[in-house]
């Protein structure tokens, strides 16, 4: 996920929805703190369901069903743009907010402002949190020394 301009329109959307799926609801609410949500039509009302999470035997082999995870989705239309939200968890308000933001960010009038105000900082914070967790794990990295063991 790079903030540089991406050529494939799906990649832009994928990056955006991946970041928004990981966002706190509070950060999303702040976007609309002044004027409230823009007018939008709900194509698919917020709904909580599940997605069956699949794994692969041995990590790379036959697919199997590991178990389900809760997922909440919402689809809206803002002007000519369809905004979609699918994210883990049961937060319906967040689903509505993400769908509206996804639609707004397809509009040239809003894209840059939302990138600067929301997505950029979200991406930075996520990268920082990931890096911190990784460096804490790295502090527990060991070198084992094999000692010669007696016969027995």
């Amino acid at each position: 996920m790079s903030r540089a301009d991406l050529p494939d329109p799906n990649e832009v959307r994928k990056r955006r929805l991946a970041l928004l799926a990981r966002a706190d609801r509070a950060a999303l609410e702040r976007v609309f703190a002044g004027a409230g949500l823009p007018d939008h039509c709900v194509l698919k009302a917020e709904e909580t369901g599940t997605v069956m999470v699949e794994g692969r035997a041995g990590g790379a082999g036959r697919r199997f069903n590991l178990g389900e995870a809760t997922v909440t989705r919402c689809v809206v239309r803002v002007g000519d743009h369809m905004g979609v939200s699918y994210a883990l968890g049961r937060d319906k308000r967040k689903a509505r907010l993400v769908a509206v933001i996804d639609a707004l960010m397809q509009d040239d009038a809003h894209r840059d402002a939302l990138e600067a105000e929301l997505l950029g900082p979200l991406e930075d914070a996520l990268r920082e949190a990931r890096d911190r967790a990784s460096r804490k794990a790295a502090a527990t990295k060991v070198e084992f020394f094999t000692l010669v063991r007696g016969e027995g």
Partner: peptide, 16 residues
């Protein structure tokens, strides 16, 4: 994709 999909009619008004 988005332009044509945005034209999709809503489903149930009250899902449940």
């Amino acid at each position: 994709m988005s332009a044509s999909s945005a034209a999709v009619a809503p489903g149930f008004a009250d899902l449940v």
